[in-house]
């Protein structure tokens, strides 16, 4: 599944699992329509202008899908850059398949963390905070990721559209009938419960944090970057009210630090 965000900017979505067990079927949350699958997506992004860039790869469960969809968008032209946000299997699991298909593509990986050779990243170009890449009208700026699981991790901004790619931050489940809708097209606003369902599992370490320190970091991100759009890896593309959406995580951080994680995901 893929959808055009704006000319040359595409959102590709993989929904490989059904997680209805995350929803209380007796007292369902307002966002849940009932009798539907519950998906936590893998979202990746393809930018195409003078040069093309794919951000992440889908999981090994969807190798054919990512190759087909990228081919459909690119047509006969090559992929120029493959950027890995981090080395987690659901994000990087098709790296080899994509590079085999597009052998001229340059692999770009986070410079942070250690032991890149153990992830076969020793021949990739390593980038970090402030590094830039021009694709034509799209201008990429890389950031050290503040909220991570693995240490080898990267966020980025596309400066022309002022889109912040937050990878594992701001993920949330959706109804099975809502795949590929922009956040503003959903029947319900993104809720604290949805954000909790993802971060209370994936960002398990929020259980141990000083919440005021994490929330101060959220404030810093908003003040420093003022994103107009948010492109999460496990949620829907956010076109409107980006700052207000990112602010929603503050209460979720406080809840997880008070009550602990709610489970696992992945």
């Amino acid at each position: 599944m893929y959808r055009k965000i704006t000319d040359g900017f595409y959102w590709l979505q993989e929904c490989p699992t059904n997680n209805t067990e995350f929803v209380d079927q007796v007292n369902p949350p307002k966002w849940y329509k009932g009798n539907e699958e519950v998906h936590i997506p893998q979202s990746i992004y393809l930018l195409v202008d003078e040069y093309s860039l794919l951000f992440d790869t889908f999981s090994p469960a969807s190798t054919d899908e990512v190759l087909d969809e990228v081919k459909e968008i690119l047509g006969e032209r090559d992929l120029d850059y493959l950027v890995l946000s981090h080395t987690d299997v659901p994000h990087a699991g098709n790296t080899k398949a994509i590079l085999d298909t597009y052998p001229g593509a340059q692999l770009i990986a986070p410079k942070y963390g250690t032991g890149h050779e153990l992830y076969r990243l020793n021949s990739s170009k390593l980038v970090g905070n402030g590094d830039k890449l021009e694709l034509g009208k799209f201008k990429i700026k890389f950031h050290e990721a503040p909220f991570v699981d693995s240490a080898i991790h990267l966020w980025m901004t596309e400066e022309t559209t002022n889109t912040l790619f937050t990878v594992d931050w701001h993920g949330f489940p959706h109804n099975g009938s809502d795949c590929m809708l922009f956040a503003d097209e959903l029947d319900y606003p993104i809720s604290e419960d949805q954000l909790m369902q993802f971060h209370g599992r994936v960002m398990f370490w929020l259980e141990y944090v000083k919440p005021e320190k994490v929330n101060e970091e959220i404030d810093h991100i908003l003040a420093e970057h003022s994103p107009e759009q948010v492109a999460p890896a496990h949620g829907h593309f956010i076109r409107q009210d980006a700052a207000a959406e990112l602010e929603k995580m503050k209460s979720v951080v406080e809840l997880i630090s008070e009550d602990g994680r709610i489970g696992a995901f992945g």
């Binding site: 909220f147 991570v148 240490a151 991790h153 259980e207 141990y208 000083k210």
Partner: peptide, 18 residues
């Protein structure tokens, strides 16, 4: 420091108790 970079936000007492 190098492997679990999220520890920069953690309360050492809380994770120590866990």
């Amino acid at each position: 420091y190098e492997s679990l970079s999220w520890l920069k936000y953690v309360d050492a007492r809380v994770i120590g108790d866990a």
